[in-house]
Amino acid sequence: MSKELLKIENLKTSFRIKDDYYAAVDDVSLTVNKNELLAIVGESGCGKSALAFSIMGLHSRATIEGNILFKGKNIANLPPNDMNKFRGKDMGMIFQDPLTALNPLMIIGDQIGETLLLHNKNLSVNGRKVKVIELLKKVGIPRPEYTYNQFPHQLSGGMRQRVVIAMAIANNPELLIADEPTTALDVTIQSQILDLIKVLKEDSHAGIILITHDLGVVAEMADRVAVMYAGQIVEIADVYTIFENPLHPYTRSLLNSVPNSDETNSRLHVIQGVVPSLQNLPREGCRFSDRIPWVDSSFHEKNPVLHEVSPGHFVRCTCYKHFYFPHESKEEKQNVIS
């Protein structure tokens, strides 16, 4: 058995808008190994969540092309009934907004118990309650037997996110997808939740996909990082390489945009322009070229592909070789590369 848990090959997820199909996720290939945390970063609307939903098979009206191999079995376009055998058992998902991810009319205990009921048929009612309370304890809820009977609206956001995590890990899934698990929470709770995810990973050796747009979180948590832009992965490498030696212009711009306390320069770097909307995405050439207009268009590839620059480090398009920030001089930059 290989270490490969999830292997996505040329995934393309398209949505229909006014009789035309637009790919929100385009030609994405990646792998997640056991006991590995893969972070997916990118701006809002770049297809991170669409990718996560594609893996879980939650899109009801999208066409999915390509392969999603989970433990060697292709689960792309699987009918819901077959999918339900995996979902909740072998793969779990943590949602972005814990305020809406819980059913307002069900007590916490029943919501977590549901997935146990579905995948663990020989568990007695009492056994299930014990398991749920155990899970609540595991995710750090102070009075689990009390919370068991509470409704979601009686809990704070952080507590609710813990409940959502407890639901996702109830059956010890091998793959956990966390879709911006900390976006809706304040900073202190964020760090607690991230610590919790770390602990869970150490306990269960599951593969985790962490979707985020917080580079601090990535540096803290990830083993490998995939950077997404406009539906494509533009750079994928292990976390040290991404931060030490970022190559793609987008990755470098992102890292350059992070406020740095050491810097005396008072102005933050801002990436020019906006993320193109799904309907206006450039379908040809380098999708990032519009936002770095000072780089000569001849440096971009016609059909950018991922190039392996060093083992395990892939970059899309060749423009990275010629990229420089406007405030740097062109010559200086090219010297660095060569």
């Binding site: 339900n84 949602f95 991810a101 009319l105 549901e114 995948h119 959502v164």
Partner: peptide
């Protein structure tokens, strides 16, 4: 469209189960 329906799907609930145990009480 609410997340709890999606969340319930990720737990492996079938559509009819979601309809009658999750959506129906919320419509009551």
């Amino acid at each position: 469209e609410l997340d709890y329906v999606q969340a319930s799907k990720t737990l492996g609930s079938s559509n009819f189960r979601i309809l009658f145990t999750q959506v129906l009480p919320n419509l009551s």
